[in-house]
């Protein structure tokens, strides 16, 4: 049935055409011919459009097959992004624990300080009021002496714990660099998806492709924190390696 030949002009249109011609109604007769022609032409243009879309889809699918960047993203960058995000979790975990360890060290020092002060205060106040017996005075002297002796080492512990807390905050910089790289990857995936959508949905032609490629190559590209330094031989593994390398360069 689909192959059945459809006339360009229906029987009723043909009859009307003959009637118009017989009555010398030329313009009315021409209108019938034109309307039939337009219908045929619009059918042609529809098939043309479908053909065009099919070609575009075909080309795009081919270009996706040939786009090695997509393969790289799926095979390398996305697993890499997972590693980076896991590294972020590890770093924030380590920073949180380092900070809490330091707090655990500091709190007993503060408690001990309060306790010692409370023990000294009664005798001290007695001394200030000149109401202290010799025995009590001796006790006070020992208490104060102990406090002085312990305070130095406690203050040093406090100081080093506070420095630990300070240094633990370096995770913000290092994880920030990691997350920025993952954001770049997500943006790239987004632009590829928009590319696919643009092809599959002719109505979304207005969607703009992000052609703003981030892969402007520098001589040596900054890479940010290295997550798998042990597995790579092009990177140093800690400050000692840096020092060795620099001294080998005559530094």
């Amino acid at each position: 049935m689909a192959n059945e030949l459809m006339p360009l002009l229906s029987l009723s249109q043909a009859k009307a055409l003959v009637a118009h011609l017989e009555a010398q109604q030329i313009s009315a007769a021409n209108e019938i011919i034109e309307s039939a022609g337009i219908a045929a032409a619009s059918e042609d243009s529809m098939f043309g459009k479908v053909g065009e879309l099919t070609r575009e889809l075909h080309d795009t699918l081919l270009s996706f097959q040939n786009d090695t960047r997509l393969l790289d993203m799926a095979g390398q960058d996305i697993p890499d992004a997972k590693d980076r995000l896991n590294y972020v979790i590890e770093m924030t975990d380590a920073a949180a624990n380092k900070t809490m360890d330091a707090v655990d060290t500091c709190l007993p020092i503060a408690d001990k300080l309060i306790e010692d002060l409370e023990a000294v205060i009664p005798n001290w106040q007695g001394l200030m009021r000149r109401e202290l017996a010799l025995g009590e005075f001796k006790i006070l002297c020992h208490q104060v002496d102990d406090m002085i002796n312990e305070s130095t080492s406690r203050a040093l512990t406090l100081r080093s714990s506070l420095t630990d807390i300070l240094m633990a905050q370096d995770f913000q910089d290092l994880t920030g660099q990691m997350i920025r790289r993952v954001i770049l990857l997500v943006q790239e995936i987004e632009s590829k998806l928009v590319g696919i959508l643009t092809v599959c949905h002719a109505g979304s032609a207005g969607l703009k492709l992000n052609t703003n490629k981030s892969d402007v190559k520098r001589d040596i590209e900054a890479e940010g924190p290295i997550i798998n330094a042990e597995e790579r031989d092009d990177v140093v593994n800690g400050q000692d390696d840096v020092d060795d390398l620099l001294s080998s360069l005559g530094f």
């Binding site: 910089d173 040596i220 900054a222 940010g224 924190p225 290295i226 092009d234 593994n237 390398l245 620099l246």
Partner: peptide, 10 residues
């Protein structure tokens, strides 16, 4: 955080 040998050399 840049730790590539070529970077340190550069």
């Amino acid at each position: 955080a840049e730790a590539k040998r070529e970077q340190i050399i550069e």
